[in-house]
């Protein structure tokens, strides 16, 4: 819990710093999880308009898709709700042990 809190503070601070520097910024947040999932609801990832990011919404398996959505949102697309499911077999194939499902909300900082 303490670590998650520390991470959140760092993500929020970086998002604010990017915004203050005139960059486009989006924040992705885990809304819900089902089954075992490495990051609980409320976990955050901030992305700038170059694709640089801080924080985490998974063990790494969905970050690339979330960052792609974040860049769309920064470019003017509406806020997005993304669902990710990972079957047990697929999870093992890519080296992940979670096999859970996760919903992520992505919105721009305006």
């Amino acid at each position: 819990m303490a670590d998650a809190t520390h991470d959140t503070g760092a993500v929020l601070a970086q998002a604010a710093a990017w915004k203050a520097a005139g960059k486009g910024v989006a924040i992705a947040t885990v809304v819900r999880t089902w089954g075992s999932s490495p990051r609980p609801a409320g976990s955050k990832l901030a992305v700038d308009d170059t694709g640089a990011f801080v924080g985490s919404v998974s063990g790494g398996c969905i970050e690339a898709a979330v960052i792609t959505a974040a860049l769309d949102v920064i470019a003017g697309a509406p806020a997005q709700r993304l669902g990710f499911g990972v079957s047990d077999a697929a999870a093992w194939e890519v080296g992940l042990a979670c096999g859970g499902k996760v919903e992520v909300f992505v919105e721009a900082v305006t």
Binding site: G9, L12, A16, K19, I27, E107, A108, V109, T110
Partner: peptide, 10 residues
């Protein structure tokens, strides 16, 4: 999220 809300949260 508006930048002002982010600042308020921080």
């Amino acid at each position: 999220m508006k930048a002002a809300v982010l600042a308020e949260l921080i």
